[in-house]
Amino acid sequence: MVQNNKRAAIWRTPLAIIIVLIHFAPIYILLGMAFKSPKDVTSRWILPGYIYKQNFDIAINKGNMLAGLYNTTIITVSCIVLIIVFGALAAYPLARNRSKFNGGIKAFVLGIMMVPPLSILVPLYTVMAGLKGTSTYWGIIVILTAFQLPMSIFLYTNFISAIPTALDEAASIDGCGPFRTFFLVILPQLKPITASVVILTGINCWNDYQFSLYMLQSPKIKTITLTISSFFSQNSNNVNAAAAAALMGILPVILLFLSLQKYFIKGMVDSAIK
C-alpha cells in the first residue's frame, strides 16, 4: 500500500503541470498580448521582453474603461446592498414561520431562480421602457437585484434555519418584537453567510452582460462588459489594445478571487449543497 502511494505520487506532479498549462493558457496569451506592441508580429505564445504601456493608454482614453469601471462599481455595490437587506429580511419569516403558506412562498422564490432571464427579455424591456427605466442606474439595479435575490433568500433561509430558536424566544420574553429580534439577535449572526451572498451575487452583477446590453443603451451609462464589447468591435485591428482592455476588465475580480479564495469556494459550495 505504501509503495503504491509512492508510485502514484510520481505521476501527480507532471499531471498537475499539464492541467495548469491547459487552464492557464488563455490568461497567459492575454497577458502577453496586453503588454506587446501592435508592431510586434512574433507568435502570441512568446512573451514580449518589454512592456508596451500604450495599449492601456488607448484602452483608458479611447475605450472609456474608467467610466465603465465606475458605472459597474455603482451598480454592483447598490445591488449587493439591496440583495443583502431584502434577502435577509425575506429569509427570516421563511426560516421561522414554517406554515404551509410560507412553504408556497419559498417554492415560488426557488421557481424565480429557474426563469432564464432572456425568456422574458421582450416584455421586461417593454415594462422598463414604460417606467422610463432604460439607461438609468435604478433600472438595471432593480432588474439585477430581482434576478439575484432568490439565491440570497435561499442561502439566508438555510442559514437562519440552523440558528437555534432559543435566542429568538429569549428576546421575545424580554419584550422584543420581530423587528428588534431580527436586527438585534439574528442580523449580527449572519456574517459568515453574508460573505457567500456578497461574493456569489456580486460577481453575477459585476459580470452581467445580457441585461445591460439591452437596458443600458445610452453611451453615458455603459458597464464594463458593454465598454469592452464596443471597444472590441471598434478596434478589431488593434488586438493588443483590446487585450489590454480585457485584462483591465477581469483584473478586479481576479485580484479579489486570489485574495479571498477560501470565501469564493465556500460560497459556491454553500449555494450548491442543500
Partner: peptide, 15 residues
Amino acid sequence: VRAVIYMPVMIASLI
C-alpha cells in the same frame, strides 16, 4: 491547481 481551474468561473463570460 485548484485556483487555476476555478479562477475562470469569476471572469465575465463575455470577456
